[in-house]
Amino acid sequence: MRVGGANEKQAKTAKPSRWLRSARAIWRFSQDYPLGALSAFILFTMIMIAILGPLLTPYDPLTQNLRERLQPPSLAHLAGTDQFGRDIMSRLIIGARMAMFIGFTASISRITIGGIIGIISAYAGKKTDMIIQRFMDTFQAFPNMVLIIALIAVLGPSIPNLIIAITVPGLPGPNRLTRSITLSVREHQFIEAARSIGATPARIIFLHIVPQCVAAYLILWSGSLGGAILAESSLGFLGLGVPPPHPAWGASLNEAMRIHGAPWTAIFPGLAITAAVFAANLLGDALRDVWDPRLKRL
C-alpha cells in the first residue's frame, strides 16, 4: 500500500512538470530543427484556419460584387478580388478547408491502408505475399495523376470520391515500407517468444509489429500529406475537383489562368498551395531526422 501511495504522490507532483517537459521538448525541437518547427507552425495555422473557416472570412466567399472586380490587394481586400469581385482572401480561407480535409484524410488513409496491406502481406508470406506485392508493383507503374484521373472518371467528382481517388495510387509506398519493417521484425526473438507462448497472429501484429512501424508511419504520413494536397489542387485546376462554385485553391488558379494583368488572382492561391506542401515536406524531413537518424540526410 505504501508503495502505491508513493506512486500516487509522484504522479501528482509530476503533472505540472510534464507540461514543462513537453514545452521544453518543443523548444529543443525548434532549436535543433528550425525549419521543421516553422513547418509545424504553418501546418498548425492552416488547420486552425480550416477549422475556424467562416469565422475568419472578412467577406462572403461566394458573393459577387461586379463593381469591385479585379481590385489589386488593398487594406479592404488583403489579397485583392477576382473577376467576379469576390474577395480572394475569403476564398482562400474557405479553400483551405477542402485542401486540409482532403489532404489529411487521403494521406492518412493512404498510409494506413497501405501499411496494413504491407504488414499482412509480409506476415502471410509465400504466395499471398508474392501476389499482393506484384499487384502493388503494377499500381506503382502508373503515374499518379493518370490513375487518379481515371478513377475520378469512373467514380465522378465528389469529396469522398476525391479521397478514394487520391488514396489508391498512394498505397504501394507505405505497403513496401511496412512490409520491409515487418520482415525484419518478424525474425526477432521476441516474436518467436510470443509465438511460442501461443499468441495469435492478430496479437503479434498489433502488439509487437505495429508499434515498430509507428515512427516510419509518421514520417511517411507527413511526406504523403504534401503529395495529397498537391493532387487535390491539381485536380481542382483540371476542373475535376470539388464542383464549383465551392472555393478551392486549384480551381482558383484555373480561373486565374484566363485573366492577364491581375497577377494577384494567381499569386495568392498558388502561394497557399506551395506553403502547405512545403510545410508538409519539411516537417517530414525533420521528423525523419529525429526518429530515424540512419536515414538522416547529410
Binding site: 485546376f237 494567381a266 498558388g270 498551395i273 506551395t274 506553403a275 506542401v277 512545403f278
Partner: peptide, 8 residues
Amino acid sequence: LAAPGFWI
C-alpha cells in the same frame, strides 16, 4: 519540390 508546376 513544393510549388506546383502549373502555378509557375
